[in-house]
Design a protein around this nucleic acid. Structure first.
Lengths: 198, 198
DNA sequence: ACGATCGTCTACCAATTGGTAGAGAGATGA
DNA sequence: TCATCTCTCTACCAATTGGTAGACGATCGT
């Protein structure tokens, strides 16, 4: 059982490979080999490599949205606690599969065209987050600032730290379970301090 | 006049192209064309593409180190002010040439081998920063935490925000001079809040 | 029972890539 | 003057890339 469809397996393998090694560095041949199939089968399921990249991005974005939504539904009322809940929720999959955030990050930096599609796909989530931040700032429960830029800064911190193992190695950090926990807690404290009203 | 050597021009053009479009996506032919020379001339000055990437990274790292050092020498004593000075100093070149941080970021995420060399090149700067943070934490002038991880988080925030124009566009930000100033100030406030003792 | 559709395959292909071999122009030093 | 060195060039090349054309067996609806 667990007979995942070929298409799904291609998507999953592609996410991992694209995310860890970069889109350009991974060929269709390599994806096919990892799936246990020929390149032409990949091209049967996806019109082109660009098409594949797009669909992989859609999957990654959807995964993130699901995780975030679930975390928010279960979170308490205080805005700092809610942000904390999102960080904890995103951190786990992000570290277990750096590919996820890594791919989103790489694509949105390099290729403007698929990045545009990705952006439009999660725009509503972004808008919600920004207006939420704005409301909480007005209520004095979050440090004042431009809500959009503060949101972007929080995003940059989270994805930056999750996608740059080399920077962490430079400061002597190691990816052990204890290290991961410590990193997560340090990230939470960092963001909490950055957002606490003065 | 301004007769930059072919070698220097190759380095400069490569930094821009690699940084904005990614190392893999830029061919030696394209670099050569942009310089106004043939590919073989590029390969005359640099043994291979890998070699070129390495040297470009060395140049980028050196540029950053110079900027940071200069900012620190002129900075006041208070640690938050010193960090502020570094942010302001790095922000200008980073935004004017996103390639600079973008390249460092891409390479350190994807290719472990050149990333290793890059890391060793700036390790002393990192060590200095981390031990400085540790000392100031002991003195109660910076929020307590693991100095290494706090340094990495600050780095992640700065490079993240400077290398992800798409995330900024998603929150409605525009790269006008006024927008840049606002972004810089928001970044400074964000980091200052994240590091201020509670 | 049989045609159509589905999923995967083998066989190619044109374009591009990083890289080699070596010629030739111009300056330099003996 | 001649040999050498520096720099850029033309001419190739093998490997890889994304992609096309079409054969083949299995499955399914009628």
């Amino acid at each position: 059982m667990a007979e995942r469809s070929t298409r799904d397996r291609i998507l999953e393998v592609s996410l991992d490979l694209f995310g860890t090694r970069g889109v350009d560095a991974v060929s269709l041949d390599e994806i096919a080999r990892a799936v246990g199939v020929r390149k032409q089968t990949v091209l049967y399921w996806f019109e082109s490599k660009d098409d594949l990249v797009d669909e992989v991005l859609a999957v990654a974005a959807a995964e993130l949205v699901i995780v975030i939504d679930a975390a928010l539904r279960a979170a308490p009322d205080d805005p700092l606690d809610r942000i904390d809940a999102v960080v904890r929720a995103v951190f786990r999959p992000a570290v277990r599969r750096p590919a996820l955030l890594g791919l989103i990050r790489e694509v949105s930096r390099l290729d403007t065209e698929p990045a545009e599609r990705l952006r439009s796909r999660i725009q509503s989530l972004v808008d919600r987050a920004v207006s939420y931040l704005g409301a909480e700032m007005d209520a004095g429960r979050i440090r004042r600032g431009d809500p959009g830029l503060v949101a972007a800064l929080g995003y940059a911190t989270l994805t930056g730290i999750a996608t740059e193992p080399e920077a962490l190695r430079a400061v002597g950090w190691q990816p052990t379970p204890a290290g991961l926990r410590q990193l997560r807690d340090e990230l939470r404290a960092f963001l909490r301090a950055a957002l606490t009203p003065t």
